[in-house]
């Protein structure tokens, strides 16, 4: 069992969360969408697995490299 941290590429805020804990994810699936510099930045799963933990909520501010969620695979 491996836990993969999914981190933010940008400083911004969470706009939409598209999945919920326990969902099966495939590499490249959009887990959530951030908003930064008037752009919507999708956060994609880097690995196949199950969404184990969501560490942020919509409208929450996030920093670059902040862990947004974890995937168990």
């Amino acid at each position: 069992m491996t836990i993969t941290n999914v981190a933010s590429e940008v400083i911004g805020s969470v706009w939409k969360v598209e999945m919920k804990v326990g969902d099966a994810v495939k590499t490249g699936d959009t887990i959530m969408i951030l908003e930064s510099m008037k752009m919507e930045i999708p956060v994609e799963a880097p690995v196949d697995g199950t969404l184990a933990e969501l560490k942020v909520q919509p409208e929450e501010s996030v920093d670059e490299d902040q862990v947004l969620c974890t995937i168990e695979s």
Binding site: E9, V10, S36, M37, K38, M39, I41, P42
Partner: peptide, 8 residues
Amino acid sequence: NPIAKAGA
């Protein structure tokens, strides 16, 4: 790369 800092 628009995925990082909107490509700025």
